[in-house]
Design a protein around this nucleic acid. Sequence first.
DNA 1: GGCTCCCGCCAAGAC
DNA 2: GTCTTGGCGGGAGCC
Length: 900
Amino acid sequence: MEVNCLTLKDLINPRQARLDFTIEDGENAQKENIFVDRSRMAPKTPIKNEPIDLSKQKIFTPERNPITPVKLVDKQQVEPWTPTANLKMLISAASPDIRDREKKKGLFRPIENKDDAFSDSLQLDVGDSAVDEFEKQRPSRKQKSLGLLCQKFLARYPSYPLSTEKTTISLDEVAVSLGVERRRIYDIVNVLESLHLVSRVAKNQYGWHGRHSLPKTLRTLQRLGEEQKYEEQMAYLQQKELDLMDYKFGERRKDGCPDSQDQQLLDFSEPDYPSSSANSRKDKSLRIMSQKFVMLFLVSKTKIVTLDVAAKILIEESQDTPDHSKFKTKVRRLYDIANVLTSLALIKKVHVTEERGRKPAFKWIGPVDFSSSDEELVDVSASVLPELKRETYGKIQVCAKQRLARYGSFNTVQTSERIQRKVSSEPSSPCREQGSGGYSLEIGSLAAVYRQKIEDNSQAKAFASKRVVPPASSLDPVLPVDSDYCVNPLAHQVFSVAQTDLQAFSMQNGLNGKVGVPLTSPTSDMESLKPALIAGQPLVYVPSASLFMLYGSLQEGLSPDSASEIDSRSSEVPAASEPSFTPSAQKRLCVERKLQEDEPAAKRQSQEFEDSPLSLVMPKKSSGSTDLASPKSTGNRGSMPLEDAHVNSQLLVAEEVSGKAAANCFTSAECGNPSKNIDTEKPSKENESTKEPSLLQCLYVQSPAGINGFNVLLSGSQTPHAMGPSSGQLPSFSVPCMVLPSPTLGPFSVLYSPAMPSPISSAPGTLPNTVPVSFSLPGLGSTAHLLLSPAAMVNPKSSTLPSADPQLQSQPSLNLSPVMSRSHHLIQPDSPVYMGHPVSAVQQSPAPVTPKSTRRTHRETFFKTPGSLGDPVLRRRERNQSRNTSSAQRRLEIPSGGPD
DNA sequence: GGCTCCCGCCAAGAC
DNA sequence: GTCTTGGCGGGAGCC
């Protein structure tokens, strides 16, 4: 009795607890949960326990012992432990190991609980009576639910971590801090991992990615779900109203569920999963189950999925015998998953009333329009092709270095270091020896500030709601990719935001990102630090050194080799390239993890760090960009079906990478692989050119002063002389657009260069590039005009590198395809902008003179200046962008070795 | 009484 | 062999 009293007391009052008893209590504590743990902590960590004691002692004075032994005793007597609890206690007492383990856990629990208001309230709000106190201290079932646990878990990490953040989750640590067994953490991380919110980096270690890639993941799952015809299956099951008892696996098939469909499911689940056995442990993993569960929601028109239907489908897929036991087990698991998804605010509990009564169900309340969500922009996701990255990375790095050497710095130190490392590791790089780098934190710091500001004002999804819902087709995985990828870390970190913002504006105006959308006036507020997006005015970026940025939608940045490799990879090793989007749904979903697992944790981590600055930003596509893009991008890249998300993703990535590379390389002809032949890429570009004008390659030169000082020289290859410094004065690049230092130019009119000789643009499909387009830039001043080069605008595809510079053209790294693919949909040939009509749109964003360029520009090439950006939306987008970037960065797995 | 789902055993899998 | 991971189902709590 005495012992029991002490034990209870120990649980309730840490201070009074004695170690001897504490050990024993520990067992109980663990089993009964957190509240018990605190008591354990008391002895060793008085400070931590303090709060607990105080709260518990609401009715007790500090001087007094929080809990009187008598009351405790009474309580125990009155409120005996449950059989389970008693058993646990006995076990604990009998097992030193268990005690130790429990004790250990208990030591850490206070840490978590201390800050956990919920927990505190639950555990600390003690009633007037000892009995009540005791009862209250015992967390209720709900309080211990996986959902709440998941919320606590999620609360530990930012939903949208900054790109610079690399959060590692230690399962042990989390379990201890949350006061639960690690087993519970597995349940959570498995579900989170299924959505790519986390990824396993090592044993007991997970990396936190946040929700950056969630839209993309959901989109993929939706696609996979559609491929698996889950909707049909659900409809079938619902129609049949098969209940648990009536469910007959074999009968279903006979009843009309097409064999092919079933087979498809089997195929889906078997080969693609890590385990070849459909019934293998992994095939039944919560992760996969979670993905399938989510798929059901995503493909469901009602967005409501009943557990029984979900369970049946899962059982069928797993090839398990559809007995009651299996069904029950599945339902349990689904509850587990549902709890986590609910914590993520993706679903909510509902009930579906059917003939046989009310059935538990969940309704999807998460994003539906993934393609238009902010996050989508952000995240290129982990599924970025490792190989591609390897290949292109080095090239990009080389170019980046060159650019850095020429222009000074605009990259963060981290990036610079990375670049240097990469470059140094790339012996064959022609650019390798050029430039060293004077890197500056200036921009990076600004970017960080911006991101932080945005972060503080987190409303990640607010923007999404403002967007125009793209066509269903837009869900196509192929999304426009920001070109900020690694070459210019700053660019991707900062510019991407601007791009996103512009896009957002465009979409808000129902233009779906087409050029010519009037931008909202820059709100010059405190956020003036960012580049202001002024309606009717060009977007201006102010590089730290008054430099330039380019932007371009160079197509086919990849060298033929690269392209071919990509294609081959897509077809040959899709999983490796993009786990999440492999043709096989299951495989797609699992590959990523598998790949990660295959790699040594250390290596993976190192890569992540290495890659962190590199991020593929997938600008959310503007309307339907994917659909249109798919054909184009895929056309010459490979036989992969457009629908194949995997392929598309790869292509996008490749394009993006190449595009960025191109952008960065424009300044140096030497960068890139001279052997590359632009012509090789023309075929694919031709189609694009016809549809999209695009590629706007614009360099922005801006004076620090801001937009007023904005000077843009387009068609650099053409006639820079007309507007300002000779081409020689400017960095030469094959891109039709040039950026001139504003100081040198002063207000000037941008003259449209009618016929920019574009060797590549000769493609049949290309739009006439002879139409000069003149844009006035009111925002810039009456004198300001943008002169567009037809070539640049017209033939994105062929325009790999309009530049006359052979070197540039040859550079494999110059690839504008990403832009093109996007711009497809975005810009129509008949578009006013495209046609070269004077467009107010142009005015809106100087950078993007052409529709394509406009998009591109805002997405990728914005330099943020401390003064320019004010719109909250922009800020938010920026933040999102940065998040995306970070997310993408994490996922990029680029071998330290660099490209071959 | 049925629904939920916590809990932890214990085996598969990884190292 | 040890440790990690997670499938699984008993059974308690909740409605």
